[in-house]
Design a binder for these strands. Structure first.
Lengths: 120, 120
DNA sequence: AGGGCTAGGTGTAGTATACACACAGCTCAG
DNA sequence: CTGAGCTGTGTGTATACTACACCTAGCCCT
């Protein structure tokens, strides 16, 4: 079961952070190691507390590659099947900076809204 | 121009915060005044820095009403057309609490991810 | 030999987004 | 007295995204 324990979790909010942020979060992950692959990136994102859909991760990475933000190559693993390893392109590097800025802005907007709610 | 200045802004990220948060943000706005309407709520959300789609706001409010989270009634205005005023139902009150919690969690997750990126 | 983890995918129904467009009341300038 | 601009609420729709089911396959351990 790749996509986790479906039946127990699903009610209405399967993941709190929308996948709209998926691109940005994947960029974040890639900026740390500058050489990673889908499964590993997903683990990183999960470590922040969100549950994401592997299918979406793989699709998004492909999409980013098609837009020349990433390049990929196959690599073998010692303890499992081969991996498609991604690297950020120069073009992707610009997009990465934008992505981080967007995440920061999003966080600030959320904070502003919540702060406003906290002080009645 | 209801839906804002299309041509100048739009590149790839029309609004930084995904509309997935629209429901939650509208709840936040309603929790402050406990009696508001689409246009006003949109203004509030905009004050946090995001540009939102009025069409989406009206549709979301309707949807929330259909789910018995809100009730609405028409009210006249001194300086403009009538307004459809919304109020939170008891059921909506629970959902509101959940919504705020979700926003908080989302902010924390974003913060975690960004912090991780800041400390290499 | 089978279960569980790692790894990467496809298919698709249903939903959400973004944007164009419509309708209408009010106010104020010209 | 007409039109521009703001307030206010909607509908229509092509396209994109989500969520979930499902598939293949290597490796390790019992």
């Amino acid at each position: 079961m790749t996509t986790t324990n479906s039946s127990e979790v699903s009610q209405t909010a399967p993941s709190v952070l929308p996948r709209r942020f998926l691109r940005q979060l994947l960029f974040l992950g890639l900026s740390r190691s500058d050489r990673s692959y889908g499964y590993e990136l997903a683990e990183a994102v999960r470590s922040y507390g969100l549950n994401i859909d592997m299918a979406g991760v793989y699709r998004e990475l492909r999409s980013m590659e098609q837009k020349d933000l990433l390049t990929s190559s196959w690599e073998s693993s010692d303890n499992g099947p081969d991996r498609r390893v991604y690297m950020v392109t120069p073009l992707g590097s610009d997009a990465l900076a934008t992505a981080v800025a967007e995440l920061r802005l999003a966080r600030d907007q959320l904070s502003a809204a919540l702060e406003d709610a906290d002080t009645p």
